[in-house]
Design a protein around this nucleic acid. Sequence first.
DNA 1: GGGAAACATTGATGATCGTCGATATGAAGT
DNA 2: ACTTCATATCGACGATCATCAATGTTTCCC
Lengths: 126, 126
Amino acid sequence: MIVNLVHNGSMTSLQTVEPAVDDACCAPSGQAALDAEEAQRTALVFKALADPNRLRLLSIVKATGGGEACVCDLTEPLDLSQPTVSHHLKILVDARLLHREKRGTWAYYSLVPGAIERTAGLLASL
Amino acid sequence: MIVNLVHNGSMTSLQTVEPAVDDACCAPSGQAALDAEEAQRTALVFKALADPNRLRLLSIVKATGGGEACVCDLTEPLDLSQPTVSHHLKILVDARLLHREKRGTWAYYSLVPGAIERTAGLLASL
DNA sequence: GGGAAACATTGATGATCGTCGATATGAAGT
DNA sequence: ACTTCATATCGACGATCATCAATGTTTCCC
């Protein structure tokens, strides 16, 4: 009834988890399974999205007229301290989801054009 | 030269971070900014994707012939212990990305149909 | 120059996460 | 019944994370 397939399990353990935040420009092909390096890079983007406050930051920036928002506009609606908001914004910038432009004393954050679509592409090419 | 806008910052601190894994069926509208609850639910999915080994699990399951794979098939290519792989798979199932079906001694995992597309939709409707 | 405002950085702390070995569960075969 | 195999669960440990208060930095204005 049930075909008896050959199965073996291995239990070794080793892992090199170095940050490795290279600037990779080209999207991977997306046919074979991800190798460890690709998975590491892709996970960095989703790690940036894996926090409710960061999602709200993206959402607020996107919904803001002109597509720009400064830190003080983002601190109040999230009910977080200013250093925490700055910290989250830095993570989003490092993930190439937000762009930071400093004009005078203010820092204006805006969505990186095509960043959302590119991230959706990462999902599709899993 | 620079218009002097009115800006104020608040530094209060409070937060209710309860799991709240309700079964929400309908996608949010996606015009106004996310409220705290929506952001919490959405972050759960991205949290599941925020690990390189889980991304590789999804990728391998997707690339496997028949769209099904059992734990012992996934343990070896990831170079992780069996309990760790089971733990990651549980997280992916809880996020409604993978489906688990137990047949005999084996547990077969497969992609939830439309889960990837629905997750991409979450991005688009930020 | 001096003060004020906006933001970033530092250091610390409690919480969550990824991983493992050991163990439990459950189904199949002798 | 007993063993074996595939998988899940438990408990623990080190690493990472989110958050804050305090402080540093830079820019603007008087």
